[in-house]
Simulated scan of single mutants.
Amino acid sequence: MTSVASLLREDPAKAPAAIERSPGYWTGVAKRVSRDKVAMLAGILILALVLVAIFAPWIAPADPYAGRTIRRLRPIGTAGFPLGTDELGRDMLSRLIHGARYSLMMGVTPVIMAFIAGSLIGIVAGYAGGRANTLMMRTIDVFYAFPSVLLAVALSGALGAGIQNALVSLTIVFIPPIARVAEAVTTQVRSRDYVEAARASGARALTIIRVHVLGNVLGPIFVYATGLISVSMILASGLSFLGLGVRPPEPEWGLMLNTLRTAIYTQPMVAALPGVMIFLTSISFNLLADGLRSAMDVKQ
């Protein structure tokens, strides 16, 4: 394909038309992602889980809260219970379907809130530089120094068990890494020629950030945050497993692992089902994030 630069050299009159026909950056990213079969498969699986979570009341074959002791711990393949039953005789398939709501919410919501807060902190610190950067980032480093698991457990223990407190704890855990990435990318963009030219022309800082900085830094930050969703799901499941997240009898995958741990010797396949769902969902978000990262790297 003839490049715009070659057309400028050969026939300047054709250059405007070539520029109009040339695909944009995000169009190229979408095309490269569509050619990545692994990323597309991961995206399809995530989309399917989202649809299952949305339409769970209509898809689930039984009430996820209704159980009978007489039918507890039925094996996979039992008539009427294709994935067996749990320790209270509740349908595992229905609980897994409804559990997608809680697990996806606990995985995605903290990352979204941390993406907004962390991006704001990092962009402001990266663009301001100097003492403001030092003050903001050293404060962030205090939280970043703790392991994410330890920090999440400590915050949830201090705030108390419950969905809302778990969401707050996970949000605080993910703000520091996102802020560090945002600060690093913004520092690079701040030194570019077009930003210096805008600053020399008298443009205000907010205008420069909105016009020249955001469009160049939000992409890498978004890709990094996408990869954190899998970590958020695992941490949320761990909090529920420890009794610091979702409370019984809600069908959350981590909580289901906790309640089924005593059945690992009698019905290991049934007890492993929530863990399998956590693994598949987490690896799907990781593969999708890797595909987006590769698609956004124009050097590849």
Rank of each mutant, 00 (worst) to 15 (best):
T186W: 04
R74D: 13
I264Q: 15
L96K: 13
V276W: 09
G130A: 10
A125C: 09
T69I: 08
I123K: 04
A272L: 14
I209H: 00
R72T: 12
N133H: 15
G162D: 10
L93F: 00
A152T: 03
G227S: 02
V276S: 06
P248C: 00
M137L: 14
V29M: 02
P12K: 06
E183P: 07
R101Q: 15
R72W: 09
E196N: 12
V270T: 13
R68F: 11
P249K: 00
T207F: 10
A198D: 10
N216L: 01
P16Q: 08
S103T: 15
A62G: 02
N286P: 00
P220N: 05
T69A: 09
L135F: 15
T2V: 10
A30T: 05
R247P: 06
I59R: 04
S230P: 06
G254F: 06
L96W: 07
L280C: 14
G118D: 03
L214R: 10
G275P: 10
F174E: 05
F146D: 01
T262H: 13
R74S: 14
T266Q: 15
F241E: 04
G243K: 01
M137K: 12
A17C: 05
Q267S: 11
V298F: 12
P176Y: 09
A117I: 15
V4A: 00
L7P: 04
D36Y: 07
P251W: 06
A42R: 06
P75Y: 07
L239Q: 05
R247Q: 15
G129T: 05
T109G: 06
M1K: 12
